[in-house]
């Protein structure tokens, strides 16, 4: 098999492979800044919680109108935001710690979501919602993902400085009268939008992987936020492409192939990355003169 056949031909030959690639690339690019800020804000698990939280919303959409992109998207956005706000409210106003409050919410959401889907659908439908079907992306789904990516980029360009300030020193931002609360909310909205956009392709459970794994790996490649976003985007793009190619040739499901590729890159970053990896720590054992 030639390199061309291996790496390019599947995308020339099959429209569904091209669509899958485009959808995943858009998700990878807009997921990168989302993931980096989730990690910076120590909210990596929050992404996980919200991805579970959109499930019952999407499931209600599914129950009412079948596989309707609009209904499932709207349901997902509403449910995701509601849970993010409720979990935040409970951890602020009761002694329950944030992680415990989030965990309770996502366990309930998962149960509720699975129950609602099985009310109407089959196990195949359930699998579709949980793990997505990137090889079956239709035009509306791709437009949705691309629109969400565009909105995400524009929003980050506008609020970048606010977001960094809110992330590093929220007290400072409040004391100079910056709109910290509004920025936090906008960020949550962007997170939910990206999760909802991604869930058509990778499923509610897998989409977080494409957002968090590259961001967690990026810390080992750059020390600046901008550098980390670029590194995360590159890692996500490579994972998507390699995952698609592998799943095509070896005939394994696509979303796990993409996520496992991202996982492999994460392991490599831990071992060999430029900043703080095991390799760097071993090299540093010999100290400098000054």
């Amino acid at each position: 098999m030639t390199t061309f056949n291996l790496l390019v031909a599947p995308f020339l030959e099959f429209g569904f492979m091209r669509r899958a690639l485009i959808g995943c690339l858009a998700l990878s690019l807009s997921g990168a800044p989302i993931g980096v800020f989730l990690v910076l804000r120590r909210m990596s698990l929050m992404g996980d919680v919200m991805s579970h939280a959109i499930l019952p919303g999407a499931a209600v959409g599914f129950l009412l109108s079948g596989f309707s992109l609009f209904a499932m998207t709207l349901g997902g956005v509403v449910a995701g935001l509601a849970v993010a706000l409720a979990a935040g409210f409970i951890s602020r106003t009761t002694p329950l710690k944030e992680d415990a409050s989030f965990a309770s919410f996502y366990l309930v959401s998962l149960g509720l979501g699975v129950l609602i889907v099985s009310l109407k659908g089959s196990n195949v439908d359930l699998l579709h919602v949980l793990f997505g079907n990137v090889l079956a992306l239709d035009d509306p789904a791709i437009y949705l993902i691309a629109s969400i990516a565009t909105v995400t980029f524009l929003a980050f360009a506008v609020v970048y400085r606010l977001l960094v300030a809110e992330c590093f020193d929220p007290g400072f931002l409040r004391s100079v009268g910056g709109a910290g609360g509004a920025v936090h909310f906008l960020f949550l909205v962007l997170v939910v939008l990206n999760l909802v956009g991604g869930f058509n392709a990778l499923g509610t459970l897998m989409v977080v992987g494409l957002i968090i794994l590259p961001a967690a790996s990026s810390r080992f490649w750059s020390e600046s936020i901008g550098g980390q976003i670029i590194a995360a985007a590159l890692i996500a793009v490579v994972s998507s492409y390699v995952g698609l190619v592998v799943s095509y040739h070896v005939a394994v499901p696509t979303s796990p192939a993409i996520i496992l590729t991202a996982g492999a890159i994460h392991a490599l970053s831990l071992l060999l990355g430029r900043h703080g990896s095991f390799l760097r720590q071993m090299l540093r054992a010999q100290h400098l003169r000054g």
């Binding site: 910076l40 400085r161 606010l162 300030a165 910056g178 810390r219 750059s222």
Partner: peptide, 20 residues
């Protein structure tokens, strides 16, 4: 936090630069 010393100090200009 992944931020340069310059960026940290420059936050003090907030009243004049605002977020944009």
């Amino acid at each position: 936090f992944p931020m340069r010393v310059l960026d940290l100090a420059a936050m003090g200009l907030w009243r004049r630069t605002g977020p944009f």
